[in-house]
Design a protein around this nucleic acid. Sequence first.
DNA 1: GTGAAAGCGCTAACAA
DNA 2: TTGTTAGCGCTTTCAC
Lengths: 346, 346
Amino acid sequence: MSSADTDTSRRVTIRDIADATGVAPSTVSRALSLPDRVNHATQQRIQQAARELGYVPNSQARALTSGRTRAVAVLVSDITNPFYFDVIRGTQHQLSAAGWTQLLVDTEESAEAEVAALSAVAGKADGAVLTASRLSDAQIARFAERTPLVVVNRRPPGVPSVLIDTPGGVEQAVQHLVSLGHRDVLYVAGPDSSWSNERRWRALVRVAKRLGVRVARIGPHAPFVDSGAAAADAAVHAGATACIAFNDLIAIGMLTRLRERGIRVPEDMSVVGCDDIFGADFCNPPLTTMTSPIERAGRVAIRMLLGRLDALPADEVPGEHASGAVALPTHLTVRGSTGPAPARPR
Amino acid sequence: MSSADTDTSRRVTIRDIADATGVAPSTVSRALSLPDRVNHATQQRIQQAARELGYVPNSQARALTSGRTRAVAVLVSDITNPFYFDVIRGTQHQLSAAGWTQLLVDTEESAEAEVAALSAVAGKADGAVLTASRLSDAQIARFAERTPLVVVNRRPPGVPSVLIDTPGGVEQAVQHLVSLGHRDVLYVAGPDSSWSNERRWRALVRVAKRLGVRVARIGPHAPFVDSGAAAADAAVHAGATACIAFNDLIAIGMLTRLRERGIRVPEDMSVVGCDDIFGADFCNPPLTTMTSPIERAGRVAIRMLLGRLDALPADEVPGEHASGAVALPTHLTVRGSTGPAPARPR
DNA sequence: GTGAAAGCGCTAACAA
DNA sequence: TTGTTAGCGCTTTCAC
């Protein structure tokens, strides 16, 4: 049923190549992993044979001896959230470009699951990217001692991180609202456990003070579209005419609820989201939001991690220091969901 | 800096446990992997020690001897497409429930990348799920001989598959349009390389014939929101009053374009999508679409695969035969994008 | 029921 | 430059 040559069912190993080319297995190993340390001619012969025999290196065996898996784990807190899709897209892209494997783990918003994953993953991957960790800075730092880590949207001391500069976006958003005549802004908060949530709120308070804008806050709200309904009701009850929501999911949910209640956006209420996820441009009305380079954050995180693992030339690694932070700029994308303040406060 | 006991920097191995408990490494191995084949008392002692020492099995070493990685690869053709998010969510869920690892691979719509990934993955995973493969049935079957495979929305002979019954959904969609007075339906085709695309078109032709509806087809269109603009223009040019789009991405893009052009949906044109992805409910107007159990498809695919790998009790494995197909029902979700046919054909 | 020993496929000293 | 020799941590015969 198969061709006349050797057994088809067994995978080709470096031994097979060694036999075929008349060299020692170690030479084959070198020819494949450190080509410069082998006579050019034999190197060619070996690689040729490898190709002909259909050799595929056994990554398990390789990992066992070298201690390196050429895989990295990417932990997300909720695989359901479109924000992470973009992150994953970025990490995936950068990893496959480097020939590495991505292990995707959903921690489901649970710190225990995160700890479990991080411990389990230690042997399976050479490093990990934490997006939206639910752990304390100290815990993260502790794990980082054993496993190279890069965190997104967190700033644990000593651990390299990628920050999306939403505070900068908040400033633009408030200025935009001010330019439309708004003097009151309501912050629709996300989960208390979110680092970004506090960061955005503080940025809002700071900017508002400077621009003479009054701010208030409602929440916390879970980061789902469905949470938007309650948020919208609360915003209306608070008499708000301009809201900045923790993220686009909540903002989109608010839009839907406001429409149901006959409250016009932006005529009666302006809504600003955060992140510019898939859907923010085609919801109704289209959402003004802080566009974050989410995919880029994923790519940068991987580049930093690969840099730390010496798997990337130094000049391709972002950030000056190994434990430094890289901040990616955000910009406001104005769409239909924001408009002039109503003539008189309601 | 660390506690007084042994070296902190090295990972705990079964040898350490063996030393600590005074048994042989092989006994530790058994106690951990095949607990029934060990004296209950010593088994307890060993597991206790393992816990105390913080033992984490080295999956590489385990894989090397056992030949099993307890990981599965999930290949998607475009990680950008929200359809796959739901699939990934399903696979991730089912895998982590079983304590397995998910390797996520984006083949970027390329058959070569898929082949490369499939070969590379062979050693890293015990099996793979192909969602939207770009390979031929024969190629898939060939890979399936070496690596346990489950395919989604394909039907290569001999390879277990999970099918989302969009033909059934097409029937409901056409009946819905007929009930609104439409007698002409335009199919807005997806990519030629898509198996589902042909399947949906054929189902449409069949149903239309039975119900006395005229059908036409435009396309192919790439499965992106951005493709929807050209599709909408073509549909308008064709004088269509009711369209069924290959998927929601195209349908949402059409909605946007029609609105730009001042063509009212559903008054001037009814649009039906397919899949019910994230966003279909909050686009403008909300999209009537065939709701597919996408996440469930992912879960079912993993269960079938784990079943084939003997990693799941037989009674939890869907489908009668190892190489059978499981079809998941679809249903039509009617929202604002469909309405009565215009009084007279335009 | 438990231990000794071999070896999975590969890499990394160390010699030659 | 190449071959020899040891393992990496674990599972798995095969004895005992």
